[in-house]
Amino acid sequence: MKSIMMLISMAILLNVTFTSEAIAQQGMSWHGSGGWGHGSQYGMMYDPQTIESISGDVVSVDKVTLMHGMHYGVHLTVKTAEGNVSVHLGPAWYIENQDVKITPNDKVTIKGSRITFDGQPAMIAIEVRKGNEVLTLRDPEGYPVWSGWKRQ
């Protein structure tokens, strides 16, 4: 009888342990910066001295991996009066969970830091304006909003 009670107690203890862990993890996942953080190799390309705005039509919205080891992100090609511009928004897990949705043929104004990426001109977006909607991605110093904190 003692051994049966011991087995039942162990079963209950294991059930409570694993059930509480599963409940605690439901709906929660840690993404980290995935290489998109301010201090990452990619993040250090952001230059507050090269901030400018462009306007145009979205030609394409793509999921891309920009550098080895980075999580995939969202990239726009925007047709401006001067030609097409590559615009890097941020990690897909963040962009896909925002209320502002950017789609091909949208008219947008983008504020961002001009960079050279893989030998080609590009822009790291600070914000994307679509009509009255604004998708904010970084503060003026380049700290990504998905980081959730800033340097003190």
Rank of each mutant, 00 (worst) to 15 (best):
R114W: 14
E96H: 06
E96D: 08
L89S: 04
I102Y: 07
T80K: 04
D118M: 11
K107R: 09
G112S: 10
D99W: 10
A81T: 10
I115T: 15
D99V: 05
T80M: 10
P104M: 05
S113H: 13
D118L: 12
S86A: 08
Q120C: 07
I102E: 00
Q120N: 15
N97V: 11
E82S: 06
P91M: 15
G119W: 08
T116P: 03
V87P: 00
Q120P: 06
P91A: 05
T109G: 03
N97D: 02
P121H: 10
D106K: 03
T103E: 08
D106E: 05
D99M: 12
K101Y: 07
G90M: 08
N105A: 13
I115C: 02
D118N: 14
I110L: 05
H88Y: 15
N105H: 14
K101W: 01
E82N: 08
H88R: 13
G90Q: 00
A92G: 03
D106F: 05
A81W: 01
V85H: 03
K101D: 03
E96F: 07
W93F: 09
P91K: 02
G112D: 01
E96G: 10
G83C: 06
I115K: 05
P91F: 12
I102W: 08
T116L: 10
W93E: 00
T103M: 12
R114D: 08
S86F: 07
P121F: 12
I102M: 06
F117E: 01
V87T: 01
K107L: 11
Q98L: 04
G83S: 11
T109D: 01
V87N: 01
S113V: 11
N105D: 15
F117H: 11
T109Y: 08
N84Y: 07
S113N: 03
S113P: 10
K101C: 01
N105P: 08
H88E: 07
V108H: 05
I102F: 04
G90S: 09
T116C: 11
I102N: 00
D99R: 15
P121Y: 07
K101L: 07
K101Q: 14
T80R: 06
V100S: 02
G119A: 12
V108E: 00
T80G: 03
T109E: 13
F117T: 13
P91G: 05
S86C: 13
E82Y: 05
D99Y: 06
S113A: 13
A92Y: 13
N84W: 12
V100R: 01
A92L: 14
A92N: 12
D118C: 02
K111V: 11
E82Q: 14
T116V: 08
E82C: 05
S86W: 12
D106C: 03
N105W: 09
V85K: 15
G83E: 02
G119H: 08
K107N: 04
T103Q: 09
Q98K: 09
V100K: 03
I115R: 08
T103V: 14
G83M: 04
Y94E: 00
T116N: 10
I110H: 02
K111I: 02
S113D: 06
T80P: 02
P91R: 11
V108K: 01
D106L: 06
N105M: 05
D99L: 13
I115F: 11
R114M: 14
P121I: 04
V108Y: 09
K101N: 11
G83Q: 12
A92T: 07
T103A: 14
P91H: 05
I95W: 04
T116I: 15
I115H: 04
P91W: 06
D99I: 00
D106A: 09
F117Y: 09
K101T: 11
